[in-house]
Structures are given as C-alpha cells and as structure tokens.
Design a protein around this nucleic acid. Sequence first.
RNA 1: GCCGCAUUCGUCUAGUGGACCAGGACGCCGCCCUCUCAAGGCGGAGACCAGGGGUUCGAAUCCCCUAUGCGGCACCA
Length: 492
Amino acid sequence: MLDIRVRFAPSPTGAPHVGNIRTALFDYLWARHTGGKFILRIEDTDQAREVENGLELILESLRYLGLQWDEGPDVGGAYGPYRQSERLPLYAEHAQQLIAKGAAYYCYCTPERLEQMREAQHARGESTRYDYRCRYLSPEERAAHERAGDPKVVRLAVPREGKTTLRDFIHGDLTIANENVDDQVLLKSDSFPTYHLAVVVDDHLMKISHVMRGDDWVPSFPKHVLVYQAFGWEIPLHGHVPMVTGADKKKLGKRHGSTSVTQFRDDGYLPEAMLNFLVRLGWSYDDKTELFTREQLIEYFTLDKIEHAPAIFDYGKLDWLNGYYIRQLSDDDLAARMLPFFERARLKADRATLRALAPLLKERIKKLTEAVAWSDFLFVDDVEYDPRSLIGKGMDAASALAALRAAQHVLEKYPAFDDEQKIEAELRAASDQLGLKPAPFFGTLRVAVTGKTVSPPLAGSLGLLGREKTLRRIARAVMVLESKQSGDRVTG
RNA sequence: GCCGCAUUCGUCUAGUGGACCAGGACGCCGCCCUCUCAAGGCGGAGACCAGGGGUUCGAAUCCCCUAUGCGGCACCA
C-alpha cells in the first residue's frame, strides 16, 4: 500500500483565496482519511509577485480552518526545506540533468525579443509560443553566447510530435498533442525555477502521492508529464479539481465580494461553517446529507465523489450554514467567539453579559459581526432614535405614552429584573388593561429602551440592561412624548 | 485565433441502463407559532436532465455531432 502524502503548495502572493483553500481542504481531508501526511510547501519562486506577509497569511488561513499540516516551513519534516526559495541548488542540478539528457536546452533569447516574437505571432493570428530559435543553435553559436556571457534560461525540449496523456482521477484521461505544448522555461535567468520545474522536482523528492490542483492547471500538465518522463520518475496520481466561480461563472475575484479566507474570518464566519460550505463545493457524500462535522468529513471523504464541473460560490447558502453552526454553539462558546467583535467595535462588553446574551442572539444572527448591531444598546450610555418610532402602527402619542407609563409602573416595583417571565407576564397584563395589543405595547417599549424597532426579546433585554438604565430610558421617552404632545397642542 | 475542460431546478448537488413522469439542501412563496426580528413546524412553486442524432426492449446515465460557458496560451503561480 502506498504512503499517502498530499501537499498544499500556495505561493505567498496575497491572502489565500477560498478556491485555493478548498483545494487545501481536499488535500487535508484525503490525508486524514487515509492516515497519510498533509504537507505545506511554499512556492515562492517569483520574487516579483511575492508579498511581505504572504507566508503569514497562508498560515493564518489554514489555522483558522484548523487544517493542521504535518510538514511545512515552520514545523519542518524529513523532506525539507519546504520553501522553494531555499531549494534553489536542487532545481539547478535537476535542470542540468535534463540538459544532459537532451530533454532541455539553454535559451539566450532576451525578453525583448520574445515580446516582439509574440506580437508578430499575434498579428498573424497564430497562437503565441516560443519559436524554437535556441533549440537548434549550432555548437558555435552556443559557444559564442557563452563567451559573451549572455543571460540564459533553461527550456524544456518538448517533442514536436506525438501526444501526452495524464490519467486524472477526477476527469479520467487527459490528452494534449505535443505540437500544442510550448517549450516552457524551466529555470529562469535569475536561477529561480519556474513552477513547471519546481513542482515536479519537489513532488518527486517529497514523495507526494496525490497531486490536487485547480482545473486552470490542466493545460500545462504535458510539461510536467514530460519532465517526469525525462527523469524516469513515477508520476504521482493527479486530480484537477473544478474551479470555484462567482455568480457570473468567472473565476472568483475581488469584484465578486469577499474571496480571501481571512476576510471571511473577520466577517464573522465560523470555521466549522466555512469547512462545511467549502467541502460541498465540488464534493458530496450522498443525496441527503448537507451537514458535516470535521470528523465526519474525515471519515466520509473520498476522491471519487469530487465533482467535474465548476461551482458557483453561493454566499447565501454560506450564511445559512453559518447561522446553523452559530445556533449549535453553547452559550459559553458563542460568548467567547463574539467577544473580539465587540472589542473591535470598541464596546465594553464583558464575558458574563455576552454569555447571558448568547441565547437571545443565537437564533437571530447569521454572522458574529451582526451581534454588535443587535446588542450595542446594552453597552452604551444612551440610545438615539427617531421619536416618531415610539408610536407604533395604530397608536397615537397618547396611547404610546400610556404604554410607557404603565411599563414604568410595573418595572419600578422590581428591585432587580431577574425574573423575566414574571415581568413579561405583568407587562402583558398592563398592556391588556390599556386595551393595547402586545405588539404595539412592546414595540413602544422596545424603541424607548433599545432605540431599535427590531431587538432581541424584550424581557430578556431588560434583564440584561438592568433596572437603572431601563427606567432612565423609559423616563426619557416619556418626556419626549410629553413634549411632543404639548408641542402638538401648541402648533395644532 | 489555437488548445483543453465542462453542461441535472436560480444556486450547491443525488443519480454510473429499468427502483426517476429525476431525490435532497439553500433561496423563494404560503400557512402555523409569535412582543419585533429570527428560529422552528407544515405545505408549495421550481429541471422537458444544453440541443440534435444514434446504440438498446429501455437512457439523465453509453457513442457521435453541434451549441454555449469557462479555463489556458509569461523568464506568474
């Protein structure tokens, strides 16, 4: 039985994208499912595109989702280093071997020349590709370039005939005619490898058993297969996972909304919801199950259930899932997870209050960020609102005033608001006595106390707000209505 | 332009020749519950399985063609 070793190999060019991280999830699940190893390798071979905190963003994203890696740049492992920029000699050496085997050659073409070449090809309506100029250089010409010290790259010598096939465990056999494959650069003039050399060398050296990557890599598989064959290496199992797209079916990008994993974290999405959502983009277990715990995913995940076609990232369904997982949280847990969002909003929310608030918000919020807007009235001195909203539908200023005074009477009797059920019952009775339906009665009280027309259940909210603030706010609302009434009389 | 991949309700998907006049979930609509908002319960609309040819007693499922969409065509990954 072969040792399962799968790797996630991002390049540190920015915050990891949900599409990429979905692939990482598949990698992780496959490793855990099989008892294999999940390896993190950093493909930092493009110095120009690298971002300073790129590595940190990758690690953060993986940690947020709990995709723990077994080998990687920070934890090491038997096949390191795990940063390609630290493996340069390896690539140079292997490029050398390919040249010796006649599978690759030095190319002295300048970027300017290549640019002109492509322009000309484009003008002629041809597909752009290297024109083989340096592939067939005479020994003399080659020596001249060497003597002149011209910068050079190493290019793969792709056969001009035949075709190359890759057995893909998601798509089946993929085949591309060699005549359509470019003589790709393998080693750049700055002595860094390109992706095409580095992946093959590293996947082989790191004994990777399964290569999973996005569908957008399909067109370049022949280059990799050819390199494997030139070395005489066994080709790992490959699977090209379908793309994750926006609603317009185009590759997910900034214009589609949030796309980076860390952004979702900051927007208040739970890792368990993200995990569940991401895995269902391109993978399913059966015809009924939508909800999966991490443990279940590890148990159920198999490669044969991966979808072939691209999937649209449905933000609405993610919200539903997130709401579902929030409802499953214990009050303590929810409180702990909400805390940072209140801190970020500069509200002095203490753990105990949040813990008591949790059951009230649990079934009302879809994201942790929403907790703040629902409950900020608890953590400020006073609330602002449009006085007109004190008067509900079917009410007038007089009835609203009566409702508030009745509430005042009821609430003043209680030294503490701890018996919510009893308070609610009494408020209801008071409302009844005034001949008001509960809706307008509680509505007026709600605005007076929370400043909102929508809030968590009132009795619970009053309990959390406390007697002093509650009564103060009601008294203020009474004054507002009184002055409004007298004002009405004066002007009317 | 060339090459490649894909195509089941709006969306994510189940489906691998008969159990499918196509099942589940999100969303949507209605009802119930209800102090607001949710959550929850119940019910409903929604896919001639991209189109056209075959193969077969029988096709969403196999083959061919077409269409459409997407992806790739760098000394980027």
